[in-house]
Amino acid sequence: MHQSKILPYLLLLPAAVLIVAVVAYPMVYGITLSLTDRTLHSFEADFIGLENFRKLLQDDRFLTVAGNSVLWPIYTVIGSVLSGFLLALILNQNFLGRRFARGILLVPWTVPTVAVAFVWVWLYDPLVGIFNQIVLLVGGSRLPFMSNVGMAQFWMALPVTWRFYPFVMLMLLAGLQAIDQELYAAAGVDGANMWQRFWHITLPMVRGILGLVTVLEFIWLFNHFDIIWIMTGGGPADATHNFATYAYYQGFKTFKYAYASAIGVVMLAILFFSSLVYLYLQDRMEIEL
C-alpha cells in the first residue's frame, strides 16, 4: 500500500526534474536577473529592484517595439488565420486535384524558417528581387520593401503568414470534415443559401478550433524570432523589432543581460495571459465536444 503511494511520484520525478531544469529554473533566473544590473562587463550583479522596468518605460526604442508588438499579431495572426480558413474551406470541397492541392498547400509548413527568410529576402531585394522586377516590368519604379520604415512590418508579415497558414488550414480542415453533412442537407431543404449555411452551420461548428488556433498562432507569432532576425535584424529604424528580437539585441549585441531579461519578463507576462486564454478555450472546446 505504502509502495503504491510513492511509486507514482518516483515515476514522475524524471519529468519533474527536467521541467525544473529547463523551464522553471531559467524562468526564475530570468526574473531574478531582471532585478539586477548584470551586464557582460560587470561580473557581479547588484540588486536594483524595478530599475530596469523603469528604464524600459523611458526607452523610446522599447516603446517603438511595444507598438510594433501590437501591430505584428494583427498582421500575422489575422493573415494566417484568414488565409488558412479560406484555404480549408476550398480544400473541403470536391474538385479535381484536391489531394494534390492539399499536399502543395502544406509545403510552407515543412520549409525551415531560415530558408523562408532567405528566400523572401531575395524576393524583396531592391536590385534583383523578382517583386521589383515585376514592378519595373509594368512600368513602376523600384519599391524599397524592407527599408520603408512605415511599411516594413507589413511586408515582413507576408513571409511569416505564408509560413504559418498551413497549420491553421490543417486544423480547420479537420474540423470542417467532422461536420455532419446531414446538417447541410437539412439546411438546403430549408432553402438556406451558401452564406447562411456558412454562418449558421460551418462557423459555429468550427468556432472552438478557430479560437484555439488563433490563440496558438498568437502565442507562436507574438515572439517570433528567426525570420525577422534574418531578414532585417529588427530594422530599419526598429520598425520590425518585436519583444523577442529586441531582447536578443539587448542581451547579445549590447550585452545588457539584465535589461534583456526585463524585456523577457514583459514578454512572459503577456504570453502567460495568452496561455490562460488558450487553456480556457481548450477546456470549453472539450466540453462542447
Binding site: P144, M146, S147, A237
Partner: peptide
C-alpha cells in the same frame, strides 16, 4: 542613395544585395 539601401548591409544580419553588387552593376 539607392532605394532599399537601409536594408543593404555587408556587416549586419540583413542579406539583401550588398553594396558591392550595386557598384559592380553600375547602379
Amino acid at each position: 542613395l539607392p532605394p532599399g539601401v537601409t536594408t543593404v548591409t555587408t556587416y549586419g544580419t540583413s542579406t539583401a544585395t550588398p553594396i558591392d553588387d550595386w557598384y559592380n552593376a553600375g547602379q
